[in-house]
């Protein structure tokens, strides 16, 4: 693969249209973006303002999973393919307890008016699973001996709200469970549409996918 344009940006960049223009000038087929929330939102807006002929856009954009940004950006998200950890697609129900956890989280946020992410798909299940596994390991080992707990976590397979988890040699999951989703069919800035299936189709992993990738511009009007 030939890289025609590669640049870093600074977190206080106020406007991203010059960056997108410079990238477009190299006529890329795909634009891979690794960005933090400010940049993610800025680039999504620049994509709406300047447009692009690239067929695939997205990648590692942190922030587009947050309820506030999803609602704020709304239809501008259509067509972007991005990583995610958990989305309300039917195939995610394979994981026991996940939807119950999300329901509990969302009603607690609403009832207590907490100033946290209103939907909680992105990090809540993984954070829960994180502590769940530690808890399971501590119970299995029967003590707080760090070395023994570490060994148990490395050697065994766990089941939690994000499915079956087994760690590989390098400390990552043996089979990666990070999702790649594509935003589509977003019509307005209503937050609740992101709590229903369909706005973020799972492309990867293949065994739980709910849609196929479509070209960026075909999903934008």
């Amino acid at each position: 693969m030939e890289i025609v344009y590669e640049q870093n940006y600074n977190p206080k960049t106020a406007d991203f249209t010059p960056i997108l223009r410079a990238a477009n000038a190299k006529k890329p087929d795909a634009i891979y973006i690794a960005s933090y929330p400010n940049g993610s939102a800025g680039l999504v807006r620049a994509l709406a303002e300047v447009g692009t002929d690239a067929k695939a856009v997205g990648g590692g954009m942190v922030g587009l999973q947050f309820a506030g940004l999803m609602a704020g950006l709304g239809p501008m998200l259509n067509g972007i393919a991005n990583y995610d950890f958990f989305v309300p697609e039917p195939t995610m129900n394979l994981y026991p307890g996940a939807s119950a956890l999300i329901d509990r989280y969302q009603s607690k946020v609403k009832a207590e008016n907490l100033k946290v992410d209103a939907l909680g798909y992105y990090l809540v299940p993984w954070a829960y699973a994180n502590l769940d596994i530690l808890g399971q390991a501590v119970e299995a080992v029967g003590s707080l001996d760090q070395v023994a707990i570490g060994k148990y976590i490395r050697d065994n397979e766990f089941t939690s709200v994000v499915g079956k988890i087994k760690f590989g040699k390098n400390g990552e999951w043996e089979r990666p469970r990070t999702l790649v989703v594509q935003y589509q069919g977003i019509t307005n800035n209503d937050l609740q549409q992101f709590a229903t299936p369909g706005t973020r189709k799972i492309l990867l992993p293949a065994d739980i996918s709910t849609g196929d990738i479509q070209s960026f511009n075909s999903l934008r009007k």
Partner: peptide
């Protein structure tokens, strides 16, 4: 959390075609 506002002019731009392959987009 990051916050945004909604207004009809956000996300739109004004394209001025100046010449072949030259156009200015004003967000």
């Amino acid at each position: 959390d990051h916050r945004l506002v909604e207004a009809p002019y956000i996300g739109q731009s004004w394209n001025i075609v100046i010449g072949e392959e030259i156009d200015v987009a004003i967000p």
